[in-house]
């Protein structure tokens, strides 16, 4: 068995931090919370590195830890919602626009908003599978392995998400 090469924290941070924050923003409703969770995950990564634990696939480990952290954050969302002033509107504009893609330029703001809103209407599980499959471009089997699902179950969730989002797209066109 060949030894797994050690990767520095800085390299992993540079490679994965933007991806993880994007994933958190897809799975959570609040950009500030997404940044918090990303920092938590990177802290866990640092602890793993200091404990000299080596994972064969850091990207999969990081994705799994991020998804679990987002689930925990969602579960405890109700008391934070109460504590923080019961759903006071958060200014999305406060957080700077970090990612700009060619699709952003092609799609109008209204269309993008409709897609995001439709995505937010999906169940948490559907969001997870869709984000990993079509935003992070993992294969269906990788999505299932990352989320600890059977491949058939992952496909079911994925197809339901696709069907629901396409209904929204028909409304846009």
């Amino acid at each position: 068995m060949s030894a797994v090469p050690q990767v520095s924290f800085e390299d992993l941070h540079a490679e994965h931090a933007p991806r993880l924050e994007r994933l958190c923003r897809l799975l959570l409703n609040d950009p500030t919370e997404a940044q918090d969770v990303t920092q938590d995950v990177l802290l866990k990564l640092l602890q793993e590195q200091r404990a000299a634990r080596v994972h064969e696939a850091w990207d999969r480990w990081l994705t799994r830890v991020t998804v679990n952290a987002c689930r925990d954050r969602r579960r405890s969302g109700w008391w934070r919602w109460w504590r923080d002033g019961r759903g006071s509107p958060r200014e999305e504009a406060r957080s700077p626009v970090v990612w700009t893609t060619p699709e952003d330029a092609l799609l109008g703001v209204e269309a993008r908003r409709a897609i995001w809103l439709a995505f937010r209407q999906l169940s948490p599980r559907q969001r997870e599978v869709f984000a990993l499959r079509y935003v992070h471009e993992l294969s269906t089997s990788e999505v299932a392995a990352t989320l600890g699902l059977g491949e058939g179950s992952a496909k079911q969730h994925l197809f339901r998400a696709v069907r629901q989002l396409r209904v929204t797209l028909r409304g846009i066109r």
């Binding site: 994007r22 923003r25 897809l26 409703n29 609040d30 950009p31 759903g87 006071s88 509107p89 958060r90 200014e91 999305e92 504009a93 626009v97 970090v98 990612w99 700009t100 893609t101 060619p102 699709e103 952003d104 799609l107 703001v109 269309a111 993008r112 908003r113 897609i115 995001w116 809103l117 995505f119 937010r120 984000a131 079509y134 935003v135 471009e137 989002l165 797209l169």
Partner: peptide
């Protein structure tokens, strides 16, 4: 299209409230 839109920035007004 959906993947691209979700890969980009979250448009204003989506997560407010």
């Amino acid at each position: 299209l959906v993947g691209g839109a979700l890969r980009g920035a979250c448009p204003p007004g989506v997560s407010a409230g």
